[in-house]
């Protein structure tokens, strides 16, 4: 269930300037408002795009968070690939819909 809240933080961050201010002012306090696992919380504290992808965050949310962190497009794509190498296949969410979590990202590296 906490993938829902993990994505919700990023959804609200992407669309609301006040949440962006809170992010910069006191990120841990902002995250206290969401039900997150330690791993999810850590991924947000560290801005770990690769782990967020593996945890199941939708790319339509994740790419804007990456832009918010000033990560260039090709580096964003590379971070997700590195995340899969480091943490394994996508665990949850829409990219883990088939193949028991062996997401198409493995086949699609090109």
């Amino acid at each position: 269930m906490s993938l829902y809240y993990l994505q919700k933080v990023l959804y609200q961050l992407n669309r609301d300037d006040r949440v962006k201010q809170e992010y910069h002012a006191d990120l841990p306090a902002l995250l206290d408002g969401y039900e997150l696992s330690d791993e999810e919380r850590g991924a947000l504290i560290n801005g770990d795009i690769g782990l967020l992808y593996v945890l199941g965050v939708n790319g339509q949310i994740l790419m804007h968070y990456a832009a918010f962190l000033n990560i260039e497009w090709f580096d964003y794509l590379e971070s997700m690939r590195a995340g899969i190498k480091k943490y394994g296949p996508v665990r949850e969410g829409v990219y883990a819909m088939t193949g028991g979590g062996q997401s198409f990202t493995l086949e699609g590296e090109r």
Binding site: Y53, N58, G59, Q60, L62, M63, L77, M80, R81, I84, Y95, F104, T105, G108, E109, R110
Partner: peptide, 10 residues
Amino acid sequence: HWPATPDSGK
């Protein structure tokens, strides 16, 4: 398409 994923461009 596979937007905003490692397969972007496929």
